[in-house]
Amino acid sequence: MTLTTETYDELRAIGARYPEARSGLLPMLHLVQSVEGRITPEGIEACAEVLGITAADVSGVATFYTMYKRRPVGDYHVGVCTNTLCAVMGGDQIFSRLKEHLDVGNDETTEDGKVTLEHIECNAACDYAPVMTVNWEFMDNMTPDAAVGLVDALRDGAEVHSTRGPRIVTWREAERVLAGFPDDLADEGPAAGPASLVGLGIARDRGWTAPHPDTDAGSGRTADSKQEAVAQADTGRAETETKQEEGSDD
């Protein structure tokens, strides 16, 4: 497949957002996926041509990041978090049930080309564990049965909504948003899911608030020098590096 002039124009437009065009490479590769359904050799050549770098440079980047796929992805990328917390809460059972139900292995696509299954790492929704994603939209508090129902609905072409977002778009449409070309769905879905609001709800019930704006405890400065700051900072590494820096100043 040859990329259209329109795609080339959009690739250039991405580069133009940045002081140096190469900064656009990650979103450019998202655009390639939205057009091609995966990272293709043509897509790599196009990015290289637009940026004036070698195809090897582009390949090196495309193979580093896990969201870029070299094999065709289905209409729906289904992720199951199997990092420790979600795994313990049932993510392992969900993932094995889906592998069996869909008859695919990790990072494989069903024969009808609809669903690509992948176990994913922590997606920053641990208070909704076990968590799944469909085209990188949250599906919170899943169970094996709910997961089977979800993938069946996706394969049947039913309209599926994220628990904290809009109706699920296709993987290619999602990739276009990640390339920095927004769809018009930002206003869909809730502001927050129930778990995000638990602490706030308790505070409201008990009348707990932050101090009155007139409160003044004076200076809270915690460190006066860089040395003191790195000694307090929560990493021995900062301290080591600062000492190296001082050493190199001598």
Partner: peptide, 21 residues
């Protein structure tokens, strides 16, 4: 004495369409 919970960043999360300008 400061309250146990002090919503500042989370204070508006329950508002209607809190993500809008």
């Amino acid at each position: 004495m400061t309250d146990v919970l002090t919503p500042v960043l989370t204070d508006n999360w329950g508002d209607d369409r809190s993500w809008t300008l």
